[in-house]
Every structure is written in structure tokens, then in C-alpha cells.
Design a protein around this nucleic acid. Structure first.
Length: 271
DNA sequence: CGGACAACCTGGCGGC
DNA sequence: TGCCGCCAGGTTGTCC
């Protein structure tokens, strides 16, 4: 679920409930979800730190405290939301981390599959340092994309999923971007023309912006911080549409495995 | 460096 | 209904 548009939606939804708050305590029930620091240090260290801002880098959520930064990666099934202390409204069985706020509310990190990860560090670049560029950032230009692309080889789809190449694109938006640019997911990167690179660049930005506009895709686990569903899934052209007619040409959408990931594409429209 | 694959985990769903 | 196998949006490490 959570790729760039979903994480961005979560971040936007958390800014208001966390604004001006201080974390006064933290507790967790899944120790392996905490990467750093060690357990006893973590709870003691985070207590008393005020929230300064909530941001995103790739698929990481950065809650900038003072002096540390709390980073959370939702992985496949993570949810992050703020509710009153005594809230049991959603009977969420999968809450792994609870951050007590100073206004009788809690920031809760729920994660059924236990893939999510939590970090508390002085310098967030310790965690995000290896990430590639932000695809929606002004500094991510076509020229930079082209220069990075021509240094690579291999299949285009796995490259789009490589967070060190480009931060934030996951399996869904990779499939959608390749459809939008008319490129086959198995195309070798070094066979792309200038025109195709430009189409892909534009398509990546378009599908991500569209996803944010729709407040993320709630196919399965993803929910906005207020508990409601995003709408992006209603706009997908190929993802999750195996054997259904392509919206553009009517041919059935194919599903294959590329780099161990389910991959949807139109064999007629994508070359 | 590229690519294949296992591992980390649990829940949901289709099929029988 | 119940059980079983399969699949899942992410990332990392290992091996060839």
C-alpha cells in the first residue's frame, strides 16, 4: 500500500493533530520493529520531545522532534494515526507502538504484518541517506533523470522500484507509470530513446501527483490518518486489472512476474 | 553491477 | 463452513 502518494497523504493528515504537541511517553509491543536506539534508551530519550514538523522522504515519515527525529516506515501494512487516549473505536488489534501526547491523545502505529520499522535518530540522513531523488521535487529535472538512467542497464521496472535510484515509487505506481508512458516493463533501460525517457519522466510525476490528488490507494490495508479510504485505486489503468480490457485499446491486461513482483501491463500499448 | 531468491510476518481470498 | 494454498503495495542480505 504505502508508496509515495499514500505516505504523503498520511503526512498531510498528521500535521494538524501533531502541531504543537509534545511526546510525553512511548510504549511498544513489537521490539523488532524498533531499529534504533535500543529499547530502554528509546522510551527514555523520546519522552519530553516536542513535535516541530512532519515531513516525508521517499516512503519514510519524518516526525521532527527536538532534538531527535522519529522516522517511521509503513512497509506493507502500516497505519499511523492520532486518537484520544481511550479510543478503541476501530478495535485495532495490530497497534505495535503508542506515543503518548500531551493533550490526552495518542499517536498509534499499527502494523498487522510487522514489517514496519521505527527509528529515533539525531540525524535523519542516517536512515534516508541512500535514497535517490524525490520525483516531485523541483530539483528532479528531466536532465538529471536522463543522466542517471543512461548510467544503468537492466530492466526498467525493477529500476523504478530501486529506492536508491528514485525514492518513493512502489509496485503500483511503477506499473501505472510504465503504462502511461507506453513502455513494456521488461524493456532494457539502455534501449530507451530520448523521447521515451521524456515520456517516462512525465508519466512518473503524473501518476504520483494523481495518486496524491486522490489521497492514496486503499486496495487493502492503507487508510488515511482519519481512518477513511483513499480513491486512487479507482483511477488505475492496469494495476489489479489482469485479464480485463485495456481502457485504451481493449486488449486484455497481462500480469507477469518481474523481479519477483506482480506486474500489470497492456501488451498492445506497451512496447 | 545485475539478477534470482530467501527472509521477515500476517491476513484475506479463491478454490475445493 | 472449514481448511489449504497462494498472494500481497517493501526492503535487505546472500549468492552466483
Amino acid at each position: 500500500m504505502p508508496e509515495l502518494p499514500e505516505v504523503e497523504t498520511v503526512v498531510r493528515g498528521l500535521r494538524e493533530p501533531l502541531a504543537g504537541r509534545t511526546i510525553i511517553a512511548a510504549a511498544y509491543t513489537w521490539p523488532r520493529g524498533l531499529v534504533t536506539p535500543d529499547g530502554p534508551i528509546f522510551s527514555a530519550r523520546i519522552a519530553g520531545q516536542p513535535v516541530r514538523s512532519v515531513d516525508r522522504r521517499g516512503k519514510y515519515i519524518l516526525i521532527r522532534l527536538d532534538p531527535d527525529t522519529l522516522l517511521i516506515h509503513l512497509k506493507m501494512t502500516g497505519r499511523l494515526y492520532v486518537v484520544p487516549d481511550d479510543s478503541v473505536q476501530d478495535a485495532d488489534r495490530w497497534v505495535r507502538f503508542t506515543f503518548q501526547l500531551d493533550n490526552a491523545h495518542q499517536l498509534r502505529f499499527s502494523d498487522s504484518r510487522k514489517f514496519g520499522r521505527v527509528y529515533l535518530v539525531e540525524d535523519p540522513s542516517e536512515v534516508t541517506g541512500r535514497l535517490g531523488p524525490e520525483p516531485l521535487d523541483e530539483s528532479f529535472t528531466l536532465e538529471e533523470f536522463r543522466q542517471q538512467l543512461v548510467r544503468r542497464s537492466g530492466q526498467i521496472k525493477p529500476l523504478l522500484l530501486n529506492q536508491a535510484f528514485l525514492a518513493g515509487v512502489g509496485n503500483i505506481y511503477a506499473d501505472e507509470a510504465l503504462f502511461a508512458s507506453g513502455l513494456h516493463p521488461l524493456r532494457r533501460v539502455n534501449t530507451l530513446s530520448e523521447d521515451e525517457i521524456a515520456r517516462l519522466y512525465a508519466a512518473i510525476q503524473a501518476v504520483l501527483q494523481d495518486g496524491i490528488q486522490s489521497q492514496g490507494a486503499s486496495i487493502n490495508w492503507y487508510r488515511k490518518p482519519d481512518g477513511s479510504r483513499g480513491q486512487a485505486q479507482d483511477r488505475f489503468q492496469v494495476y489489479g486489472r489482469a485479464n480485463q480490457p485495456c481502457f485504451r485499446c481493449g486488449q486484455p491486461v497481462s500480469k507477469i512476474v518481474v523481479g519477483q513482483r506482480g506486474t500489470h501491463f497492456c501488451p498492445a500499448c506497451q512496447r
